[in-house]
Nucleic acid binder design. Structure first.
Lengths: 225, 225
DNA sequence: CCACCATTCAATCAATGTGTTGAGCATTGC
DNA sequence: GCAATGCTCAACACATTGATTGAATGGTGG
């Protein structure tokens, strides 16, 4: 029984390492490329010593590795299935969000999910007519990768940035995963303003998993001086 | 009221909920079927009140749901992609274990991975001759599902339970995932005792993912009405 | 080999998380 | 209704984690 205890204890330890917003933020920045401690502290708005401590915590769990370059210690992502773990975590979070949203929607007797369109349907439409792709996730998620040609307007800014959208084109909104419900809100808001909008059924994760083109923000890797 | 939580804080909160060995243990027991608080407290060796608190923690994060039956409150697994999350966590842990193991192995100049056999190869052999399948994971993991006809001997008990294995048959040992390295140890131990043993390359996860038959020990979760 | 500087370590305090106790509150059986 | 049962809640003590400071380390570049 002693070894099993150790095994589950190990899992808990790993989960706990991810159980801190600052460490997750550091991890996301590191996922975009090697960064020095100083740069990471800047990016995450942490003190140098604090960032260093969190980074060592991550390192102990194997989520990051280090190497020295000149005066700087550069942190990079560790080996192993880290991405699947983070994706699973986000997927679950999306589902939770959707669940809460559904409760609210039910109480208001909302109709269903505003008939989402599939990836195939989207591809077909993109080849036949012009479609405006609207990415309603946060800016940093958008920067990490999005559908080619998509416009990024986080859902909470949508109402006051409607002007950025072409009035004549059909709009397809999407967010992360099938569970992510931001796009439902977005479509509802767009339609309320008289725009032709639909949502993509399975979101960005599905698109990427299908091996389709993904665009990333201009500056992907900036090692600095 | 500061209910505003950034996306990343939500992720951290969920991860933190999994970041406790007792909660993980509770979750694993619940995954096997509905259980009352009392039973769960027993199974995990926690006080009643403490178990109750941890369960409510899990409930807040949506990992479990409750219903009342007579005097008892029964906890069951929540909806949403919980299993993938736990699998991803375990996979990552397996990889970490393998990494440490490799370091040790390297320092001893061990040979490579004892030529693992693929799933296809295993299936072929199972159809042609008799093969003894040896599951070296812990008993509770075994209970949650294993290859059909497999014998379960946790790797740490292997040395003193060799008698349970048929001496004349070829043995194929496996554990969870490609990263899991317990089976390497097992094969090494078996060969040291003169038995014909090989390890399965990708472990149970791969087998299950391929949609092949899985045997379970205890009754599987029944959602009821 | 020396001075510099990015990073880490150590010590401290505040904040959070955990486990125990005993009280409180439903539900069932009498 | 009343006691018994099963669970939750509240309050406390204790352990762990997190942020801040300032000092130490150790590799670099001169």
């Amino acid at each position: 029984m002693n070894t099993h205890q150790t095994h589950i204890e190990t899992l808990a330890l790993l989960a706990r390492t991810l159980g801190n917003a600052h460490r997750l933020a550091l991890l996301e920045h590191i996922a975009q490329g090697e960064r020095s401690v100083e740069r990471l502290a800047e990016l995450t708005d942490l003190s140098l010593a604090n960032a260093s401590q969190h980074l060592q915590h991550l390192k102990r769990a194997g989520f990051v590795q280090t190497r020295r370059e000149g005066k700087n210690v550069l942190y990079r992502l560790g080996t192993g299935p880290i991405a699947p773990l983070l994706v699973a975590l986000r997927d679950y979070a999306d589902h939770q969000q959707a669940r809460i949203h559904d409760l609210v929607a039910d109480s208001r007797s909302h109709p269903a999910r505003l008939e989402p369109i599939s990836r195939e349907e989207l591809l077909r439409r993109m080849s036949e007519e012009s479609v405006t792709l609207l990415d309603v996730r946060s800016e940093d998620e958008f920067a990490l990768g999005h559908l080619p040609g998509a416009i990024n307007i986080p859902v909470e800014e949508l109402e006051r940035r409607l002007a950025e959208l072409p009035a004549k084109q059909n709009i397809v909104a999407y967010c992360r995963s099938p569970y992510c419900v931001l796009s439902v809100d977005a479509v509802a808001a767009l339609r309320a303003h008289g725009l032709a909008a639909q949502r993509l059924a399975n979101g960005f994760v599905d698109w990427k998993a299908a091996g389709l083109d993904v665009e990333t923000a201009t500056r992907v890797y900036d090692p600095g001086p």
